[in-house]
Simulated assay, not measured.
Amino acid sequence: METKINQRTVALSEALETIKCNQNQLIKQEKLAFLGRLTAGFCHQFKNPLYQLKYGLATVNDMLNESQTKIKAQENQEEILDLVKSLQEPVGKLEMIFKLILLSPSQQKITFVEVSPNEFVEAILNSVIKYHSSPLLASQIKTCFSSELDQIKKIPHTLEIPLFNIIENALDVLDEAKKKKSNFVPNLAIKTEKKFNCWWVSIKDNGLGIDPSIENHLFEPFVTTKPETKCIGLGLYISQEVINKIGGEIIFKPLEKGVSFTLCIPCQKR
């Protein structure tokens, strides 16, 4: 009996070691797969703005080389200036991508800017509209800013990441809905309000909504409703990390038409 028990113990130990080895192997494979998806995703993100910069600068260079005479230079001046201005869009996109890559909430030190919440939100909205390839008309964007949030407060600088990401996602969804529905009238509503010791900003769109099958996974890494060539699904994941680090919360709510994201941000003392 003792011999059988010893044999059984040895067999179990060997089986346990085998399981551990297989587990370690799976972890390594998962890490490699994660790294591969991350690398591929960032490559897709960088590709379009880099190509825009490359061919834009090449065009400007060719036009400058062709400007042999003063007359030719004057003719091309306005066109060159327009081209240079158009390069601001890919530069802005690359800047936001770099912020997402470099952002590590666990080790980032929180810095603050002193501005009113309403001005902060409006600045982010204007920035998204400026860099988005198909912005809405002013009449299709409705803002309702609480007068209680006109006063200057200390606002975490990294809050621009979730705000920019969620507003940009809303514009993408509305743009997609316009392509799929001929009579579709896009609407984006942004509202700020003060509740207790927090200030809230809600972003609502009347777009195509989100598939219920992924609603509970929205804030997980690499979860996205967009094609892989357009997005890597890290925006909402990092946005939630940012909000959690400053003690806030992101609330997602599906609507009858579209969706709503609400950011709850604790008020900081000046």
Rank of each mutant, 00 (worst) to 15 (best):
E2Q: 12
Q7Y: 06
A11Q: 13
L12N: 13
E17A: 15
T18D: 13
K20P: 01
C21W: 11
C21A: 15
N22M: 12
Q23I: 02
N24V: 00
N24S: 13
Q25T: 08
Q25E: 15
I27Y: 11
L32N: 04
L32E: 12
F34R: 10
F34Y: 13
L35H: 08
A40D: 08
A40Q: 10
F42A: 04
H44V: 02
H44R: 01
F46Q: 00
F46N: 02
K47M: 08
Q52R: 10
A58E: 13
V60P: 06
D62I: 10
L64A: 08
N65A: 15
K70A: 07
E75N: 12
E75I: 12
N76H: 13
N76G: 02
Q77Y: 11
E78Q: 13
V91N: 07
F98R: 08
L100C: 07
I101V: 14
I101M: 12
S104I: 12
S106Q: 12
K109H: 11
E114M: 05
N118K: 06
N118Y: 02
E119R: 11
E119G: 05
A123H: 05
I124E: 10
L125F: 06
S127Y: 06
S127W: 02
K130P: 04
L137H: 14
L137F: 07
S139Y: 07
I141P: 08
I141R: 01
K142H: 10
F145C: 04
S146G: 00
Q151W: 02
I152Y: 00
I152V: 15
I155H: 09
P156A: 09
H157M: 11
L159H: 04
I161S: 04
I161M: 06
P162S: 07
P162H: 02
N165T: 13
I166V: 08
N169T: 05
L171S: 08
V173F: 13
L174C: 08
D175E: 13
E176F: 15
A177I: 03
N183F: 09
V185I: 15
L188T: 04
A189R: 09
I190Y: 03
K191M: 08
K191S: 11
K194Y: 03
N197V: 01
W199I: 00
V201F: 02
I203W: 02
K204M: 13
N206L: 06
G207P: 03
L208W: 02
G209L: 01
D211E: 12
D211C: 09
I214S: 08
H217V: 00
F222N: 04
T224C: 01
P227A: 07
P227I: 03
K230T: 05
K230W: 00
I232G: 05
G233T: 01
G235H: 00
L236M: 08
Y237P: 03
S239L: 05
Q240A: 06
E241G: 05
V242K: 04
V242C: 12
I243F: 02
N244K: 12
K245F: 05
F252H: 11
F252Y: 15
E256K: 15
G258H: 04
F261A: 10
T262Y: 00
L263T: 00
C267F: 10
Q268G: 02
K269W: 03
K269L: 14
R270P: 00
